[in-house]
């Protein structure tokens, strides 16, 4: 098991290496959770893992012993189905015991298929229906603006999720109010539940859309931690909300899952599980 706290005073390469080890652990743990529960959303767990690991093990300020500390940076997983990755991350970060991950989706477990803030420390708002995270994140950022507080708000949305109009209403509000403490990571894996985003209702050009709504936009390889960290860690100042289009691979790290819509909520059999774990260890 890797160390679970961020380390300071290191080179970018050292920081990235540390985050990568956490990400490896999260991927393996998430996959085991899906395998044991016989359900879950492995594709979207795996595409979001690197961004989650970068946030929780390098970028964000938080105290697992005081999860509602007023000065904490906020994180919202708007694509609330990626609980395998989210719960593994929160447990690794110390918000609840790692042993509890074995109860994922078991009767009366607090680790529901979608996160519940009233049960799980570290969860800011209950997600599951897509397109809910952005307005809540915008509200948090406005509160910070009113209070002249220096905490930041991060949000991960799916890309298919951006077909929901609520995201664009919130994006317009954020752009209008220049909510510079707000950072959106779009998990741009180009797949939704049933097919590719561009074959369903296309999102491109996504960068232009956000720019037109008053955001700064950068595109990055969402699995390149060394590229992600400087975009997230506040070292570049923005006077607008920041949208990071993270180009990712759904099912990242497991060859037979990568870029396949069927692994959106597929569950590996024993043989596939074994192969997947080998690949994640390699």
């Amino acid at each position: 098991m890797p160390e679970s706290r961020p380390r300071n005073g290191q080179t970018l390469a050292e920081r990235a290496a540390f985050v990568r080890e956490q990400a490896r652990w999260i991927r393996k743990r998430a996959l085991r959770m899906v395998f044991d529960a016989r359900q879950g959303h492995p594709g979207g767990d795996l595409s979001a893992t690197d961004a989650l690991a970068a946030l929780y093990f390098d970028v964000m300020r938080y105290d697992p012993a005081d999860p509602r500390w007023a000065g904490r940076d906020r994180f919202i997983l708007s694509k609330g189905h990626a609980t395998g990755a989210l719960y593994s991350t929160l447990a690794l970060a110390g918000f609840f015991p790692q042993e509890e991950l074995t109860t994922y989706m078991q009767p009366l477990s607090r680790l529901n298929g979608h996160p519940n803030r009233n049960k799980i420390p570290g969860v800011e708002t209950n997600t599951g229906p897509l397109g809910h995270g952005m307005p809540v994140a915008v509200g948090i950022a406005i509160a910070a603006q009113i209070d002249k507080a220096d905490y930041r708000t991060f949000i991960i949305t799916g890309d298919g999720e951006l077909q929901e109009g609520s995201n664009w209403e919130a994006a317009m509000t954020a752009g209008h109010r220049k909510l510079s403490s707000l950072t959106l990571i779009v998990d741009r894996n180009r797949l939704q539940q049933g097919a590719g985003t561009e074959d369903t209702v296309g999102l491109d050009p996504l960068d232009d859309k956000f720019r037109a709504f008053g955001w700064d936009v950068v595109e990055v390889d969402g699995h390149d931690i060394e590229a992600l960290l400087p975009l997230l860690d506040g070292s570049i100042r923005h006077d607008k909300p920041l949208c990071i289009i993270a180009n990712t691979v759904k099912g990242k790290g497991i060859s037979f899952m990568e870029n396949k819509a069927s692994w959106h909520h597929g569950v590996p059999n024993a043989e596939q599980y074994e192969q997947a774990m080998k690949e994640l260890d390699a």
């Binding site: 529901n112 298929g113 979608h114 519940n116």
Partner: peptide, 9 residues
């Protein structure tokens, strides 16, 4: 019917 996916579903 969505069972473990919880009250949102």
């Amino acid at each position: 019917a969505y069972g473990e996916l919880g009250p949102t579903h």
